[in-house]
């Protein structure tokens, strides 16, 4: 029940932070602020779900930011060319799936370590898309573009609901399906999983493909809120997402972690960012505080669980 402990800690931290802000800052209680925080968190959370699954499987994917940029710029171009929005969304999902499958094939079947594969695709995909767009932003976009991102349902924007649905679906997938349990098995002890008849290569491949698909979805939740697509879309997203996953209690070496923890981690990071604004601290300190968060969260976790004796380093 280690994960639950972490989740409760984050909920407590979130409650204290939001409680303090609500009492001292009248603006923070605003429905608009809450809705903004949830919307900002939604797309990061969807990428975070994919990253959680990849990390639980004992892998890592640092190419998510570049994949998001590719999906965003290509779908933006399609929308400008007059392709109807449902097809644009489908294109984003398929593009993400395709790029994820590429990562997955290289890791699972050519057996190149995932950090090298995704380091390479991080560079290649960003380079290719900037080269293709020549660095120009994609704008203006047709009026239908912002429907997905700005439509409200029961007072909250659609991306928030889609994000929640994705968190729920992924939680069920990980906890209650054969494939989900195979992911934990492959991540905690690949040899044992293999001996138990789990095709770990297949699991690895689909984990990356699924991650790509989720990046495609996240792209749609993110870019349809704005009236242009920039080439630097998603830059540094991998660090933000991995931070949220680690803060959310997922073991960076694989084998344990929950999507709910990641969602709470994303919320905590987002609330902290806006807390800085409310408390009048310059946004330049945002990154330092975010980093301190990981350090404190992980150190506390290691001290609390008494897991001092794990080997130095990672592989």
């Amino acid at each position: 029940m280690r994960e639950r402990g972490r989740e409760l800690t984050i909920v407590a931290a979130l409650a204290m932070l939001s409680g303090y802000l609500s009492l001292t800052q009248a603006n923070f209680r605003d429905a608009f602020t809450i809705s903004t925080i949830l919307t900002n968190a939604a797309y990061v959370a969807v990428v975070g779900i994919g990253m959680t699954i990849v990390i639980v499987a004992g892998q890592i994917d640092i190419s998510v930011g570049s994949m998001l940029a590719v999906c965003a710029l290509i779908t933006g171009t399609l929308a400008r060319a007059g392709v109807p929005m449902p097809l644009v969304v489908l294109a984003s999902l398929l593009l993400g799936l395709g790029m994820g499958a590429l990562n997955g094939a290289l890791v699972a079947y050519l057996r190149v370590p995932s950090i090298i594969v995704t380091l390479a695709t991080l560079t290649v995909l960003r380079g290719a898309i900037v080269w293709w767009t020549k660095g120009y932003w994609v704008m203006p976009l047709p009026p239908g573009w912002k429907v997905l991102g700005t439509t409200h349902l029961l007072g909250l924007p659609l991306p928030v609901w889609i994000g929640w649905a994705a968190v729920l679906a992924a939680s069920i997938l990980l906890a209650h399906t054969v494939f989900g349990r195979e992911i934990y098995a492959a991540g905690s002890h690949p040899q044992a999983a293999q001996l138990n008849g789990i095709d770990t290569a297949r699991v690895t491949f689909w984990v990356f493909a699924l991650n790509g698909l989720l990046v495609g979805l996240a792209t749609m939740l993110h870019v349809t809120r704005f009236s242009m697509v920039q080439t630097q879309e998603g830059l540094g997203l991998e660090f933000l997402v991995i931070t949220a996953v680690v803060v959310g209690g997922t073991n960076i070496f694989g084998g344990s972690g929950t999507v709910m923890g990641t969602y709470l981690g994303v919320l905590l990071l987002t609330v902290t960012s806006s807390a800085l604004t409310f408390l009048g601290i310059s946004a330049t300190w945002d990154q330092a505080i975010r980093g301190a968060f990981i350090l404190v969260a992980v150190t506390a976790d290691i001290v609390r669980t008494g897991q001092w004796r794990q080997p130095v380093g990672w592989a």
Binding site: G291, A292, L295
Partner: peptide, 19 residues
């Protein structure tokens, strides 16, 4: 403290740049 190197230095990547 035996925190994994990738986690520590990912954190300090943000902390040092942030400072």
């Amino acid at each position: 403290v035996r925190v994994p190197a990738i986690v520590v230095t990912l954190a300090t990547l943000a902390v040092y740049r942030g400072i």
